[in-house]
């Protein structure tokens, strides 16, 4: 009997998509920012809240490379130390959002029925408020420590992840391999975490870097309005806020440099996010 090529099928080649350049550029930017944050004490001779009593609102120069603010604090040093807080809050809050939102979406999407309907309507209510107003309210209610800021920004982003995860799980549920998993004797937990989660996670992880950028902007926005970190702590948004008054008097360096740092970091996150979107084929 003739033997056919059923058993000699070549493995499919991985299709390469674009986006690699964007990811590389974004990663480079973030690595530089991260290096600045980690090596902050060695990269500047001033502490972030250390006051130089003879230099108030001094323009950029040899003593203070990016100048000083109205309290006599070194801007360069503050920008470096602020990166620790901004990066930390961004990553932690997005991780929280992915964890909380992802779990809600996974569980409700798989459960279906009234559980899903009820949860989704509740999330609708949360999402009906403008995001920033909601963040303001939560931050104002909980007080402005770093933990509450992470909590506020994380929880506010969670519904979007819940929605994304639920949509993903719902479409995955109709695949036969989920039914096959049930037939193979997997428990519900095993189906959720072994079969659904690994397949549903990609879109969430692709969105996460973009969201880190937004989280930094949100933190900066809260700080700008005085609801962010406590006053002397170095944070980009707070620095822009306090420096904004000085711009009028021609002292541009107090707000422009932290603004640039903020801009570059968000750009880094967005480049990675955009690159991932292209690479996973979700955007051309």
């Amino acid at each position: 009997m003739a033997v056919v090529d059923d058993l000699t099928h070549p493995p499919a080649k991985r299709v390469r998509r674009g986006g690699d350049g964007l990811i590389a550029a974004g990663s480079l930017i973030l690595l530089i920012v991260l290096f600045g944050a980690v090596a902050a004490p060695w990269l500047s001779q001033w502490g972030p809240t250390e006051i130089d009593p003879i230099a108030f609102l001094e323009p950029p120069g040899p003593g203070h490379w990016l100048g000083t603010d109205g309290n006599g604090m070194d801007i360069w040093s503050r920008i470096l130390f602020a990166a620790r807080i901004d990066l930390g809050v961004a990553v932690a809050s997005v991780a929280l959002a992915v964890l909380v939102g992802g779990t809600i979406g996974l569980a409700t999407g798989y459960a279906g029925g009234w559980v899903e309907e009820t949860t989704m309507r509740l999330l609708d209510i949360v999402q009906a408020f403008p995001v920033f107003i909601l963040a303001l309210t939560v931050a104002a209610l909980l007080g402005n420590s770093l933990h509450t800021l992470i909590l506020a920004i994380g929880l506010i982003n969670a519904p979007a992840y819940a929605r994304l995860m639920r949509a993903e799980v719902r479409s995955l549920k109709s695949h036969i391999y989920i039914e096959a998993a049930e037939c193979a004797g997997n428990s519900r937990l095993s189906i959720l975490f072994r079969h659904l989660l690994p397949n549903a996670l990609t879109p969430l992880l692709v969105i996460a870097p973009l969201n880190c950028g937004w989280a930094i902007l949100m933190l900066a926005g809260l700080s700008f309005l005085g609801l962010g970190v406590a006053v002397p702590t170095a944070e980009w948004g707070a620095m822009i806020s306090t420096g904004a008054a000085d711009v009028v008097g021609g002292r541009w360096w107090t707000s422009v440099f932290p603004g640039l740092a903020l801009f570059i970091t968000v750009l880094g996150f967005n480049l990675i996010g955009e690159g991932l979107l292209q690479r996973t084929g979700q955007r051309r």
Partner: peptide, 9 residues
Amino acid sequence: FQDPIDALN
């Protein structure tokens, strides 16, 4: 199952 590819994770 009927659809051999889709039946595999």
